[in-house]
Design a protein around this nucleic acid. Structure first.
Length: 338
DNA sequence: TTCCAGGCGG
DNA sequence: CCGCCCGGAA
């Protein structure tokens, strides 16, 4: 047992009772579905992702189907999730998986992190959450929680420091000998029954009609650790106003013991402004294109009416074209790419 | 305003 | 390492 053993047990119990009932959790999604959920969740709240993910997976359940979809459909289906380049990268990722890996997501960190749109976090998350492998997952939530609980300070902005990575790796629980996670048969009814764990209810799932299924995959300790620390950071140990009264490990938290020094300081990576930026203009252009009927084009004069500053507007259209998100026709009209 | 299950190009 | 990429919600 590692130094985090006692904390891990309490977090696991908290996780069982409080985990949000997201549709890609608890063995209900394929590895590809888990990857899609992670890409959609990059810099986007999970609550907003859920309806998009459900529709998306119903339409393109595997990499091969997404790979063969028209780009315009992919961009439109991405809707208002934001950062639409993620949609194109996800489709490129799907092409590689379909073509180079026979439509089966590689069970290998190095192969995953080499895929388009997949960085260290997403590759680690897929290895842990989809494949059940023991690997440290490092995202903004886990960095904040581990830094607070074990170091007593706020996590810094920017990339994860070597100290934070070492901490995450050191704390990651051992998995022991169990092979229970391999007993799951995804997509069928032949799943290991986790018994008493099956009736835990989600916190914010009032809107969801489906209950968590009784049949559950029994996760390895490292996977539960990753999931529970991340969930704690998302729901309890939040950046601005952590709910320490509701925290299952408040008694062990160095940050709380120290009087929560620097809480509310801008420790995370400073965010860009939005009003008036190219991101806003690009968003408006794409929104106008998504609203068109299929295969329709946006006439030049309608494009010009989208934004006063035509210098900025033209630059944004050019950058959207560079990104492959729009196509410019010779007459100056715009459309989504095929 | 700030934050959010980041990734990528310069 | 730094700046950019979207949009909604607290």
């Amino acid at each position: 047992m590692t130094e985090s053993g006692d904390i891990a047990l309490r977090l696991a119990a908290w996780w069982e009772a409080n985990a949000r009932d997201l549709p890609w959790r608890f063995g209900r999604a394929t590895p590809w579905g888990v990857l899609v959920s992670e890409v959609m969740s990059q810099q986007t709240q999970m609550s907003r992702v859920v309806p998009y993910w459900t529709t998306w997976m119903g339409r393109w359940p595997d990499a091969r189907s997404l790979a063969s979809a028209p780009k315009a459909d992919v961009i439109t289906a991405w809707g208002r999730l934001g950062y639409p380049r993620r949609a194109l990268r996800l489709q490129e990722c799907a092409r590689v998986v379909a073509d180079d890996y026979a439509d089966e997501l590689p069970h290998d960190y190095d192969a995953l992190v080499a895929l388009p749109g997949i960085g260290d976090y997403t590759a680690s998350a897929v290895m842990s959450f989809a494949f059940g492998e023991r690997i440290a997952v490092i995202d903004t939530n886990i960095r904040r929680v581990l830094s607070r609980v074990f170091l007593g300070v706020e996590s810094r902005g920017g990339a994860a420091s070597p100290v934070e990575r070492a901490l995450a790796n050191r704390l990651l629980p051992d998995d022991g000998f169990t092979d229970m996670a391999d007993m799951v048969v995804r997509g069928s009814g032949a799943v290991e029954d986790a018994g008493d764990a099956g009736d835990a209810k989600g916190m914010n799932n009032k809107a969801r009609s489906g209950r968590r299924p009784r049949a559950r995959r029994r996760e390895r300790p490292s996977v539960v650790w990753n999931q529970s620390v991340m969930e704690l950071g998302a729901v309890v140990c939040t950046a601005k106003s952590p709910l320490c009264e509701a925290c299952p490990i408040a008694d062990d938290c160095a940050f709380l013991k120290a009087g929560r020094p620097g809480l509310g300081e801008r420790r995370t990576r400073p965010r860009q402004r939005f009003q008036g930026t190219d991101r806003q203009v690009r968003g408006m252009v794409l929104e106008a294109l998504r609203a068109l009927p299929a295969n329709a084009v946006l006439a030049r004069n309608e494009v010009a009416g989208l934004w006063k500053d035509h210098v900025q507007l033209d630059a944004c259209i050019a950058s959207l074209d560079d990104d492959g998100l729009v196509e410019m026709l010779p007459d100056g009209s715009l459309r989504l790419p095929r």
